[in-house]
Amino acid sequence: MSSIVIALPKIEDAKKIRAVLARHGFTVASVCTTASNALSSASELGSGVLICSHRLPDMNYLDLSECMPRDFEMLLLASARVICEVPTSILSVQMPVKASDLVNTVNMILTQQERRKRKEKKKPKARSWKEQNYISNAKMMLMQRNHLSEDEAYRYIQKSSMDSGTNMVETAQMLLMLLYDE
């Protein structure tokens, strides 16, 4: 679950931003006036959006962006003059803020984060050296004994794995046991 942290020098402004986001269905996890408090909140939350101004009492937005947790994105609220100098890696909304611009931008960031998380979950985890070794040995045995090419041996293990409902490492281990027992 992605979270929203708001860090603005004036707490009243931060609370107004929170109210706008709340009216549009967003939950703000933290409202603060310093970068250190924002970083503390962000590190506890895991992922989300940090909405901040270009200058906080203890840090500017560039320094803050370098210290943020990896899965947090910054949304800078600043004047047109400041936005001209903002790096492209930082999203920004021009002050005075239009509620629709703020809501749409926050929604876009959170949607992208959710897509990224889903994509990461779908990636197969990397095999350990030991697991890779089982598959390689099973391929070699199939290539030697059944005169298969490397691709054919791999596809055989893959198909056997799918047919039996086991993962490739278990299938390779079973093949090795069967081939060694002969």
Rank of each mutant, 00 (worst) to 15 (best):
S2G: 14
I4T: 07
I4P: 00
I4D: 01
I4L: 05
I4F: 03
V5I: 12
V5K: 09
A7W: 03
I11W: 04
D13I: 02
K15N: 14
K16T: 14
R18L: 06
V20C: 06
R23F: 09
H24L: 04
F26W: 06
T27N: 08
V28I: 13
A29K: 07
S30P: 01
T34H: 10
S36W: 06
L39A: 09
S41W: 06
S41V: 08
S43M: 15
E44K: 09
E44G: 01
S53V: 03
H54I: 00
L56S: 05
P57G: 14
M59P: 02
Y61I: 01
L62C: 05
L62W: 03
D63F: 11
S65H: 13
S65C: 11
S65P: 02
P69D: 06
D71R: 06
M74D: 03
L75D: 12
L75A: 12
L76Y: 12
L77A: 15
A78Y: 00
A80M: 06
I83Y: 07
E85G: 03
P87C: 12
P87Q: 11
T88N: 09
S92D: 04
V93N: 06
Q94M: 12
Q94L: 04
M95P: 00
P96F: 04
A99Y: 08
N104G: 10
M108S: 07
M108H: 13
M108V: 06
I109H: 00
I109T: 01
T111N: 00
E114I: 09
E114L: 05
R116D: 13
R118K: 14
R118A: 12
K119H: 07
K121S: 13
P124M: 06
W129E: 13
W129M: 08
W129T: 10
E131T: 08
Q132F: 04
I135D: 03
I135M: 08
S136L: 14
S136T: 13
A138Y: 05
K139T: 03
M141Q: 14
M141I: 07
L142H: 01
L142N: 05
N146L: 11
H147K: 15
S149V: 02
R155W: 13
Y156K: 15
M162I: 12
S164P: 00
T166S: 07
T166P: 00
M168C: 13
E170V: 10
E170S: 12
E170Q: 11
Q173L: 06
L176Y: 01
M177S: 11
L178Y: 13
Y180F: 15
